[in-house]
Design a protein around this nucleic acid. Sequence first.
RNA 1: GGGCACUUAGCUCAGUGGUAGAGCGCUGCAUUCACAUUGCAGAUGUCGGGGGUUCAAGUCCCUCAGUGCCCACCA
Length: 708
Amino acid sequence: MDKTYNQKIVEEKWYKFWEEKGFFKPEINPDGQPYTIILPPPNANAPLHFGHAMYVVEDILIRYHRMLGEATLWLPGSDHAGFETQVVFEKKLEKMGKSRFDYDRDTLYQMIWDFVQDNKGAMEGQLRRLGFSLDWSRMKFTLDPEIVKIVYKTFKKLFDDGLLYRAERLVNYCTTNGTSFSDLEVIYEERNDKFYYLKYPLADSKDYIIIATTRPETMLGDTAVAVNPEDKRYKHLISKKVRLPLTDREIPIIADDAIDTELGTGAEKVTPAHDPADFELGQKHHLDQISVINFDGTMAQNTGKYAGTTLKEARQAILEDLEAQGLVEKIADYSHRVAVCYKCGTPIQPLLKEQWFINIQDLAQKAVEVVKIGDIKIYPQNWETTYFHWLENIKDWNISRQIVWGIQIPAWHCQDCHEWTVTDGITPPRCDKCSSLNLEKDSDVFDTWFSSGQWPFATLQSTKEGDFEKFYPTSVIETMYDILLFWVARMVMLGIYTTNQVPFKNIVLHGKVLDPLGQKMSKSKGNVVNPMEIVDQYGADAARMALVYGTAFGHDQALSHPKLQAMRNFTNKLWNIGRFILMYYQNPEARASLVDKHITAVQSLSNSNDKVILEKLNQTSEAVTKALDAYRFHDAAEVLYEFIWHQFADKYIESAKDRRAEAQPILEYVFRTSLELLHPFMPFITEELWQKLPHKGDSIMINEWPRA
RNA sequence: GGGCACUUAGCUCAGUGGUAGAGCGCUGCAUUCACAUUGCAGAUGUCGGGGGUUCAAGUCCCUCAGUGCCCACCA
């Protein structure tokens, strides 16, 4: 046996062996109960970062359950990641001095397609090197035709069931990226702005009412002024009208409880077309919605002399014009939170736009119920609160995106009767309503999360015949907690809606992996770590073990080189335990028959050291099994590390040196069993050593799990 | 405004009511022995502050302080 452990050669050798033997496929345990995890499909727009290596906990579960004899399926895939990918690709274009506007839709789509194919290949290589026992024969991509077909079907079902509606609503629009976003994709930034106090003259007197606003340029779209009904200052003005400055319109003064008497002057301008709260006020009080801002961030045609100017220019001009009429009372400093695009930081414009919305209330209610009654369990449990809170306050979901990269929505607008025809993908010959041939396809694509929200059933319905029936509902969905709402909650809703079953029985959430200084890894900071670097340096086994050891599962952790080093040392310790035990044999090849003899030896112990180590081994096996069943990976890892190093190596092996012949069967038995227990965590070195020890069977990874 | 975590040894963190733990670091000793990517021995903690429950609290409850994150979003 080599004096030092060569992880690189060993890792390559065994991964190839496992894959060629078909051990990653569920068919290896044909009679076992199904156990399924769908890998959260990584975005196909970049190589994996070290955080993705946290998926090791899925491999641990999969390898553990495979050893329990279950028909275990871990299904890989990748996500086209619509908007995210388009942004990444546009940056690439930018570097080449181009932009997306230089290409037509089809060309751009094809270019992004090719770009994504390259990335997918790189990503698969990374997942393999981490030792992930994924069933590659069932790999899926969110844009595979058979997946797209299923997504279309779901869309049509929603349409037919009346859960889908086309509505002109305020959407979160980024004028830089030219698309709308769901509420979850908007972030808020604290900004120092101005609060403008403007005088609005009353229609029937020389008096005026002063309103305060942060966005004077939207005043051209005002359709009311609102005050609190209890506000003594304004009670007498309710139902009167004001003349809206710079326009020829008169707008009413309305009363609503929502108005805060403390803020500004207690009187608010109401702009239903450009503010979400005002939109609701407008609906309630039946106000007109007047849009004065275009989708490119300029002022609309109906704003007269301001038309075509940018918002900034318009604000300036409007303030000057108001000033000239003496209508600016004062300008104060004001710090408040502004909605901005999570990608580029441009302030989000709430704009009226027709979009597809899913009426989500009933789906959300069912998603709450299945967790409340325990059909789905969440680990760590404290995330239930977040999950419930979001679903119980959810708003309808805008699933239209104005980008190219994605699944185009299968809906056609009739140019004659203006009704929509929805199909499950095929181009309809004529309008469903009026039979007109004059149809135009919606140019929008789906929100990525609409398709990835169908991932568990979409994958299994399109892999192999019978897969869906056998492997759905899946056992566990495991992902980082940051996409619990984006993705997991939506999978629950769409899964139940489409299949009448939960998509998975357990939600398991891991924490974030930070850089060595505890900072969030991000491309802009340049502190993103490639997992392959770590694997090269310490070995895949050490990298895997370091991620689960020492931090409570579910908590954030900093990438720790000392910990990686400690785990590399642990692999070295394992290697040397193996060397010590195997040194006993002259001929290491002919020992398979010894296994039975060893088991007999283990059953008739007299030496107290033997008894103690066997007892401790049983305790370890029990503790590891219990920890894995409870998703407490850190407990399992710690128990194994402590037992193997400090009980077995430091104590038992030392004590066995002067009674070697007698102890040899115990040494082998305990070590072999330890390797089996450790295998889900450190698959490569455990396989390498297990193969060298007397053993039965083809591979440690399909060996029976050693129960206490 | 609401929610969730966290605060334990110099650092990073475990600790699921019963005499304070790990990894790294530190001190001393050992070494042609499976392993220096080692072994043995050792030092280091009013477990954020205060109060309560209990025979017993790092652990349960209340409260205060600090840190991080999430949700909602007030013109």
